[in-house]
Amino acid sequence: MTDSGAAIIAVAGLRKFYGSHEVLRGVDLTVQVGEVVVVIGPSGSGKTTLLRCLNFLEEYQHGHVYIDGQLMGYRERNGHRQRQSESEIAKLRTEIGMVFQSFNLFPHMTALQNVMLAPMMVRKLPKAEARERGRFLLEKVGLADKINGYPSKLSGGQQQRVAIARALAMQPKIMLFDEATSALDPELVGEVLNVIRQLADEGMTMVIVSHEMMFAREVADRIIFMDEGLVVEEGSPEAIFTSPRTERLRTYLRRFAYNEAVVISAAPP
């Protein structure tokens, strides 16, 4: 941890293997309170794996992940590392909210029930309070009229916004977004990005994995470019997009410049 106490996420020397394949090859990352970090990179670069290691949905073999000063997933005794108990890990996870590419809403529950479940089960919130919090959050994401709707009746953008409300209901200190708009039809992407932008403006600490370059440029305090399991370059959005230092980043960005040029040239005059 480089900064004395403000780093709410501190990752050092993170290495993860799937069998013999090394997916994360020594990743370092710090995130300050209130910072919005966007992780970009080609598929297979390990961005999603890195994100999932932060809340220990993936186990890591070497290195450290500190969440709010606490080691995530392991206990260290006399230099020996032991896996934390399920309830210890679950407790740490309550500080972190996660939004998934495939939404993962509970299909047998209404939007409101989805949002209410964890506060009641995990934080032991009384039903009435959970319901109020749920209504407030669903209204905040613009779905006041859909609180009793089942996920199967909601559009992708609406489902994802419910998923964001559900994660926020646990009042986490950190929000993780794993390609939150990648599975959405283009016209639905904006409504979700608006919610994410609003959270950023409100000062939420966020780590976002995304392909939405224009959005990343707009909302990020810092951008991390990953390739083949390592952080290759990081910096402010201006530095990353206007003066990339490494060849790999330049190659990666060229792909998006082409796409954006196509979109811009197709736009009405």
Binding site: L57, T94, I96, H108
Partner: peptide, 24 residues
């Protein structure tokens, strides 16, 4: 993804099983 979401919300094994997985 269902267990992922439940785990990410801080739910432990039995609540996940009885509230999320088994009903489905």
């Amino acid at each position: 993804g269902q267990t992922d979401a439940a785990m990410a919300l801080g739910m432990t094994f039995w609540p996940r099983l009885t509230q999320v997985v088994i009903p489905q």
